[in-house]
Amino acid sequence: MIRIAIVEDEMKYQEQLIEFLRRFEREKGENIEIETYSDGDEFVENYRAQFDIILMDVQMRFMDGMSAAEEIRKMDSEVVIIFITNLAQYAIKGYAVDALDYVLKPISYFQFSERLHRAVDRMKKRDVQFITIKIKGGVQRFNIADIYFVESQGHNLIFSSKQGEFIASGTMKELENQLSSFHFFRGHKGYLINLEHVEGMNDSCAIVRGKELLVSRNKRKAFMEALSNYWGEVIK
């Protein structure tokens, strides 16, 4: 399933893009789910990092495509963005928001299918897994491998990641269940640790990115076994 958003305020282009996507779907044997939006403001307001590819008109009322893309990038660094535009100079600005490509109006199917094929290839070659977390003011999509550890503080979860620290709502138990198949271990009620980023151990703590995280005495043996299995060697 490829999830694609069309963000376009001209109905004739919305309809044309849907028609082209269905043709591409038949020709390539893909399964495409499509959602349409008529303005960048509406799209950003409803964005939950739920798409693989965004087809974004540059010139729209209320919020233009470039501004919308800037807001999207704050929440989602991985979604593939293709700009739809009348003028090539607008598309050049797309590199600032890591846009993959652009399609010039009027749109031809050949031009469109070439760009879309490239986008689908890029999407499929990403050998990563993502998790989308509700944070204050919106959502954040994480590459799971980029999460170092998660700390429970009261009713909040503090994500320590490659992108920095983020505060999310939810319970540690729910998150533990979500990440159970991704080499995370709850060595203490207050910490969920990504074994990929464990640098070592001392008597009572796991060392993750230079920080000491307490491992409970009753979980130390299981933690060491899990870490040993992950590293592929016996830790003594």
Rank of each mutant, 00 (worst) to 15 (best):
I147R: 03
S108F: 00
G200L: 06
D41H: 13
A226Q: 11
D98A: 06
Q16A: 09
I107A: 01
I235D: 01
G187L: 04
N177E: 14
G94F: 01
R3C: 06
E196L: 15
A99K: 07
D39P: 01
D98Q: 12
E25H: 06
E174Y: 04
F166M: 03
Q129S: 14
Q89K: 15
G164A: 06
M63W: 05
R122Q: 02
E33N: 13
I207A: 03
E30D: 08
F110D: 15
K173H: 11
P106E: 06
L55C: 01
E225S: 08
L116M: 08
F223G: 01
K236M: 02
I131A: 09
V80K: 04
R73M: 03
M172P: 01
E151R: 15
A119N: 03
I133E: 14
V139G: 01
R220Q: 09
E151A: 13
K236W: 05
G29K: 05
E78Q: 07
W231H: 12
F149I: 00
N46R: 15
K219C: 03
S77Q: 13
L214N: 10
K125P: 00
E10Q: 14
L87R: 13
I131T: 08
L227P: 02
E70V: 10
Y191N: 12
E45Y: 15
V139L: 07
N194A: 12
A206E: 05
Y102D: 05
G137N: 11
R186Y: 09
G170R: 00
K74Q: 10
I133N: 00
I92T: 09
Y148C: 10
F24I: 00
S38V: 13
I193C: 07
N31T: 12
V97H: 03
Q129T: 14
I167P: 00
E70A: 10
I158W: 09
F142C: 08
L192W: 11
A206I: 01
D9Y: 10
E233S: 14
R122N: 04
K134E: 13
C205I: 00
I144H: 01
M11A: 14
I32L: 06
H188S: 09
M1V: 13
L116S: 05
D9F: 10
A222K: 07
V97C: 00
E176Q: 12
R209V: 07
Q16N: 11
I207W: 02
F142W: 01
A88S: 12
V7K: 08
F83H: 02
L192E: 04
P106A: 09
R26H: 08
S204N: 15
K124A: 14
I158Q: 11
G65K: 06
V139M: 06
G154Y: 06
E196W: 06
